[in-house]
Write a protein that binds this DNA or RNA. Sequence first.
DNA 1: TTGAAAGCGCTAACAA
DNA 2: TTGTTAGCGCTTTCAA
Lengths: 343, 343
Amino acid sequence: MTITEIARLANVSKSSVSLVLNNKPGVSDKTRAKVLGIIKKYRYRPNQIAQSLAGGETKSIGLIIKEIDNPYFGRLMRGVYDACSKLGYTVLLGSSEQSTDKEAEIIRTMLSKRVDGLIISPIQNEDADYSYLVDLTKDAFPLVILGSIPNFPTNSVDIDNFAAAFDATSHLIRLGHKSITHFAGPSGHGLKRLEGFRAAMQEAGLPLQKHSIVPVQPYTPNGYQAGKELFAQSPGSPTAVFCYNDLVAIGLMNALLDLGIDVPGRVSIMGFDDIDIAEHLRVPLSTVRMPSYEIGTSAADLLISRLAEGSTPRIERITLAYTLIERRSVARMTSPVLSGAVV
Amino acid sequence: MTITEIARLANVSKSSVSLVLNNKPGVSDKTRAKVLGIIKKYRYRPNQIAQSLAGGETKSIGLIIKEIDNPYFGRLMRGVYDACSKLGYTVLLGSSEQSTDKEAEIIRTMLSKRVDGLIISPIQNEDADYSYLVDLTKDAFPLVILGSIPNFPTNSVDIDNFAAAFDATSHLIRLGHKSITHFAGPSGHGLKRLEGFRAAMQEAGLPLQKHSIVPVQPYTPNGYQAGKELFAQSPGSPTAVFCYNDLVAIGLMNALLDLGIDVPGRVSIMGFDDIDIAEHLRVPLSTVRMPSYEIGTSAADLLISRLAEGSTPRIERITLAYTLIERRSVARMTSPVLSGAVV
DNA sequence: TTGAAAGCGCTAACAA
DNA sequence: TTGTTAGCGCTTTCAA
């Protein structure tokens, strides 16, 4: 079934069919009704590929994340998807798997598929030059970044990671913890959170020691490994650790439990993200809630609103709110001497 | 940049450029080199939309699942994505959110976007007529179903849910459990698993009682709720529960823990899926491992191989292996009288 | 080995 | 209000 076919069956021209297809004025009610009848009868649906070639827009956007199976991105993807489908857009999925080359290649592929816009959670290495992103913005291609890249003006959606980490650390300090370690994540969000941690420690006059900051890959096994190493020798080990994300926190929790170290009795754990299972762990996890669903919907809404506007060079940076979630993995510090006493 | 542009710059015809673009013979090495040079220089990439309109294939497939943020589908999506991108295909994402109407609408949209094939995890209601799926196969549209629909011959990928449930239940029985409840899921996989449960109970000569089967929505809060209700009054409650999936099992586990009921001391819990966090729960979950990643890759490989073959009406049903995973949430039954004794 | 021309299914001037 | 026509950027005969 093609538009030509429909036109023939309805005894009208292609243009008339096109007009009713796109709900445009310029056709008599009679013609419209007739065409609509034929369309319904034959369950005709225009070929979107042809529409795109002729009309210019594909009604699809590309979403490029770092890992498909990752609870954080899962919720985020759902946000993007929900907002897009509500607005009639299809999403093409891309996953960079932490590889800059893949990210660049995915972008090229999506451009050749003529997506109307792109939402990207960019890989942030020390040596990433973001040249492909720069190219995009140079051409004024509709783009929304998830997170933020220093000195790179684009539409973006993020939370204030510095403030969130600062608050989370301060919370631990307020509870009496003095020896706190940060399991630090990769550049990008990881760096911001590390800075927030540092700032909070400094403000409280708490010195950073040798093991105050340990860099960790953002996955459960790495958190486990780092936990095992850090707590292998008890003396000098911290009473609280603030983790880059929940996945790391889960690993750490298991390491501690395997080591026979009580959580939160002996050490408190603070996560980040509040992924769905955080509250269902062996010890329900205190964490910072990332509004990942909202990040997704905001990004999609922002992108699509830009498309509607045409190529307005206006850029918008959206900062969403985070929330400190108190569950059981963080406890008030009890001095070893008074251990067991009511606090 | 268009092919016409490139042709002009290289002083050749569009057709020659097209031939080198598609790596086809019929151009001299000299011309090929010249064209390739221009292409590289201008970083030209053909407009895939135009290619699709002229050539017939879009090099993209549609993946329709039920929920984007769901650890089970997360791993599955990753499988599909990995296999597709390895083979040069893009995936369009669709999520039916358990609505038949949405599922049908997504299919229509994807068809109008001319995806080359479809991978669908179909909603299975009692009243689902699958008419849209039937239409698809009537037209010999390349399709792979995740799961299986009775009397509906299509390519499909699944595990033997009946056998898996049978094995899981038998495992519980072998451990001495006699009073076992099944938290049963929705039609489709849910039905198969229920039958497997029933068969195992029957084979062991264990009678089904009033509370042996409780239907539950496949999510954590529902598992929690059902757990609370079932174990509110202790007498008559089962010593083991086999859950439709891990999400339900997590809810149940929390309900039990909140009720002060020991897991697995007083009741054993068996899940299904082996989602990533299953091993990190308060009590590490014994479960049946769904090879969801492999289901994804198999489905994509199968679909794409069908595309290559042309419209061969051959259909293939792939059944993948499951695995019983023993962790801590299931224990050997100890008679209440001998409780505390060495078993 | 090359190029000209038709056509994929649609939109959008423009004329009628 | 309608129909005619010319593209959109590519592939693919078919001649040269």
